[in-house]
Nucleic acid binder design. Sequence first.
DNA 1: GCCAACGTTGGC
DNA 2: GCCAACGTTGGC
Length: 154
Amino acid sequence: MHYWLMKSEPQTFSIEDLARKGVEPWDGVRNYQARNFIRDAMRVGDGVLFYHSNCAEPGVAGIAEVASAAYPDPSQFAPRSKYHDPGSPRDAPRWWLVDVRFVRKLAHMVSLQTLQRDARLGDFALTRRGNRLSVLPVSAAQWRIIIGHEKDPV
DNA sequence: GCCAACGTTGGC
DNA sequence: GCCAACGTTGGC
C-alpha cells in the first residue's frame, strides 16, 4: 500500500466535483515523473490526498483512493482534446492514468501553510523549493501527520 | 496579474 | 551535448 498526493485546480475539478462523481479518470498528466508514479507504482486501494492548487486557499481538501490499474490516457489520442499528443505512438502510449475514487472530505482543509510549518514532515516533495509535480509520493508517516491536522482550528 | 522555478524544444 | 527561448505551474 502506497500513499500519494494529487493536485487539482479546484476551479477546474475540486473535491466537491469528485464527491459528486464518485469515480473520475485522472487524465491530463503530462509530466514524465508523475507519469512514472502513475504507471509503475500506483496500485488499486492506494491512498490519495486530494490537493487544491493554484487557488486562494491551497491545501489538502480531502481523501480519495486509487480505483483502477493504470491504463493509457485516451485524451492523448483525441485530436480535439487540449491534452492531445500527436507524438504519442498508439502501440506504446506515452501518457497513463488511473481512476480515482472519492473517499471523504476533510473536516477542515489542511493548508499549504500548515504543511510548510510542520517540521515533522521532513523532506516532502510538495514543499520542496520550486516543486511543480502534480502527482507525488507521501510516506505512511507523512500521511498520518497530515490527516492529523484535519481537526486543527482553522 | 506577477514572476520564479522548472521542463521541453530545437538550432547549432 | 549545449543552451537560449519558450510554455507551464502555482504561490503570492
